[in-house]
Amino acid sequence: MTYTKYQEIVKKETPKKKLAQHLLFAFISGGLIATLGELFYNFALNILHFPLEESSFFAGICLVSLASILTMLTFHNDLAQLCGAGMFLPTTGFANSLTSASMEGRSEGLIQGIGASIFSLAGSVICYGILISWYFATIYYLLNLWGINIWA
């Protein structure tokens, strides 16, 4: 029994991925969440008469609240097993990672448990977002300084 023979056997015996189902559900759930966001935005703009920036903030926090409450009721992980990328890519995924990580740390107290583990999963999103924005802003700053104005 050589290693190559073993790898062939594993490849043959591994069950087929449910690719079509996963892609379909990712498409539908991602779209539905964005539609919900649009609904909240229009509600804030037209019915509550908030200014533009606040309406979009309102839509964002509605999605965050929805995700956190679903996480609290333990429905989010069942939905995510079904929908895949449709749940982790919108802001619902970000809110879910914060809520679930902080809930999990509860047994270790406020500081070492909840406080220390809240950003254990979402930390890289914030870190690398800031890093890349600073990098591009520095390029923009230098181009501006040298009078090069490729775009306004």
Partner: peptide
């Protein structure tokens, strides 16, 4: 949103 999520999947 559906297309971008499909790509991520």
């Amino acid at each position: 949103a559906g297309t971008v999520c499909l790509l991520a999947q």
